[in-house]
Design a protein around this nucleic acid. Structure first.
Lengths: 136, 136
DNA sequence: CAGTATCCCAGCAGATACTG
DNA sequence: CAGTATCTGCTGGGATACTG
């Protein structure tokens, strides 16, 4: 589905128009949950095996303790992460991405294909835009 | 500028971890551009035919004039929207999604499939979580 | 170790008056 | 019509001291 294929546009009115809106709405649903600055990174980090809090803090570069906690809670609440507490001393808590989260990530990966196809074009567009608007 | 995109990932299974990171990073690239509250809605609105400013203001429910302008500028800058000015009186400006934007939207649509598959599960997870944490 | 509590700031976002 | 300018509140997010 990469090559020539340019039938991307929606051609029919009526039902397609509504569908477009509905889809845009659904996309936002997802983005509101997982569009945060750290969500994806955390899901990826917890995808293959359980990870501990401090481990995440070290792995996810630049994240603050606060945001790690908050994002973790949100992901857990949405059922994208499981949190397992081992009642030991010192405490041990493991986070792991759920099956649902992994499927989500797989879906998101289609975005990487798009990004890689168009990264150059985007950069060029920005350059052109900035050049055009620098006439001040 | 883009020097052939040095791929840290690919091939071996042992490289899955790195691959995950690279992809997560790319996903964020996209999300940073299009993860805003209104971007998707605007792209969808401008997907099928050129739309005018005021038209968008009416169509995109709840958007403020300011955010419409800002989002429009960002999308234009990234080459996701074209802006055409007709030097008439009163002025007429049309925005239209580019091919690139339409492809992006198509990629995003895979998310709707995920959302629809799991919407119930997410809601259930939230209920369970909220119930569990309501002991206050 | 795995958080919470607190303080603080920057940028997002709403509202709306004004203008070419 | 298609914006810009401006004021302002809100929230995402950083830093860090403290705690079970």
């Amino acid at each position: 589905m990469s090559q020539g294929h340019t039938d991307v546009s929606v051609q029919v009115d009526g039902a397609e128009a509504r569908m477009g809106d509905a889809r845009a709405c659904t996309v936002r649903e997802v983005l509101d949950r997982v569009g945060g600055k750290w969500s994806i990174g955390i899901i990826v980090a917890a995808a293959r095996e359980p990870v501990r809090f401090t481990e995440l803090e070290r792995t996810i570069d630049g994240i603050s303790r606060r945001m790690l906690t908050l994002t973790l809670r949100n992901l857990e609440r949405d059922g994208l992460l499981t949190r397992t507490v081992y009642p030991t001393v010192p405490p041990k808590v493991e986070y792991r991405a759920t099956e649902m989260a992994l499927e989500l990530y797989e879906s998101l990966v289609t975005l990487t294909a798009w990004a890689e196809r168009h990264r150059g074009a985007i950069a060029a567009a920005r350059d052109a835009y900035d050049l055009e608007h620098s006439r001040a």
